[in-house]
């Protein structure tokens, strides 16, 4: 069944903005040939207590580059555990970062959401460290100090459904 939706919104509606401050960002690259080994590490007992607030992976040049955002203490533990396995090399460790995330009706099914979000953030001169938009949600990873400004500009740009 196909449904054709017509959105006539002066401001795009969202269900509100959530923020997660005080996170560590760990980036690592893994050759695709050893992706199974990284999967084994992530399923190991030592990793099970870790709560990742956000994860993304991008493929390029036969590698997958991962970003993990975790609370600082867990990030340090995650980083140390990866070092012990001798597996992928951590390339970046950034602290503190924060996440702003939000979702709304039919995000991912309709055009214009990404343009509205990233244009507003870019106009404010806020640097986006990483981002993931999937399954109706928009996740922005920013420097901790930029969270307030980002939330202000997004609140002006989008309408929060009441």
């Amino acid at each position: 069944m196909e449904t054709i939706a017509v959105y006539w919104e002066s401001r795009i509606k969202t269900y509100g903005f959530q923020r997660i401050p005080e996170l560590a960002l760990i980036e690592l690259s893994c050759p695709i040939s050893v992706i199974k080994a990284l999967g084994d590490i992530l399923t190991s007992h030592d990793m099970q207590g870790l709560r990742a607030s956000f994860i993304l992976a991008q493929g390029s040049d036969r590698e997958l580059s991962f970003v993990f955002c975790l609370p600082e203490r867990e990030g340090m533990g995650f980083h140390a555990h990866l070092e012990q396995t001798g597996m992928p090399t951590s390339h970046r460790y950034i602290y503190p970062v924060g996440i702003i995330f939000f979702h709304g009706p039919h995000f991912g099914d309709r055009y214009g959401i990404a343009e509205t979000t990233f244009s507003a953030i870019s106009k404010e001169g806020i640097e986006i460290i990483a981002s993931g938009c999937a399954a109706s949600s928009v996740y922005l990873i920013l420097a901790q100090d930029d969270l307030d400004r980002a939330e202000q500009v997004l609140t002006k740009t989008f309408e929060v459904a009441k």
Partner: peptide
């Protein structure tokens, strides 16, 4: 990201999934 997303939105092309990061 602003440039590409603006271009696609102007042509009414939906982005179903997006990631952005520094390699």
């Amino acid at each position: 990201v602003p440039r590409v997303s603006k271009l696609l939105a102007s042509q009414k092309i939906n982005i179903a999934f997006l990631t952005y990061n520094k390699l």
